[in-house]
Simulated assay, not measured.
Amino acid sequence: MTASGQGSTGNVIAALCSFFIPGLGQLVQGRWIRAAVMFVLAGLLWLVLMGWVVHLWSIIDAAMYRAP
């Protein structure tokens, strides 16, 4: 799935995916490295109760992504 631009249906779906699992939206968009970074950072930071920061970053990043 490729998103055509910011606010597109693909980006909204990716943002919803990231809402449930950080990095899943980036994975849906085909951005494997960014997805892994988001998932690992959120997992590590949730251990010290700061994972919500990366979780929100993941959602916003997926929603605002512009395909090259």
Rank of each mutant, 00 (worst) to 15 (best):
W52E: 11
L16R: 06
L16K: 06
L16D: 10
L24Q: 00
A15T: 10
M50E: 04
A14K: 08
I60D: 08
V54Y: 01
V48T: 13
L16S: 09
T2W: 05
G25D: 01
H55P: 12
F20A: 09
R31P: 00
I13D: 06
F20M: 12
R66Q: 15
G43T: 05
S18P: 02
V54W: 00
P22R: 02
H55T: 15
R66L: 11
A67T: 09
I21M: 03
G25S: 10
R34F: 09
A35D: 10
A35C: 13
L45V: 10
R66K: 13
R31A: 01
A42T: 09
W46Y: 14
A67Y: 03
I33G: 11
A14R: 00
V40I: 13
Q6E: 10
V48N: 10
R31E: 07
R66Y: 08
A42R: 04
A14T: 03
V28M: 12
L45D: 07
M1P: 10
L56H: 03
A67Q: 08
V12K: 11
G25M: 04
L41M: 08
Q26S: 09
A15N: 07
G7S: 13
I60P: 03
Y65K: 02
L27H: 07
S18M: 03
M64T: 14
Q26W: 05
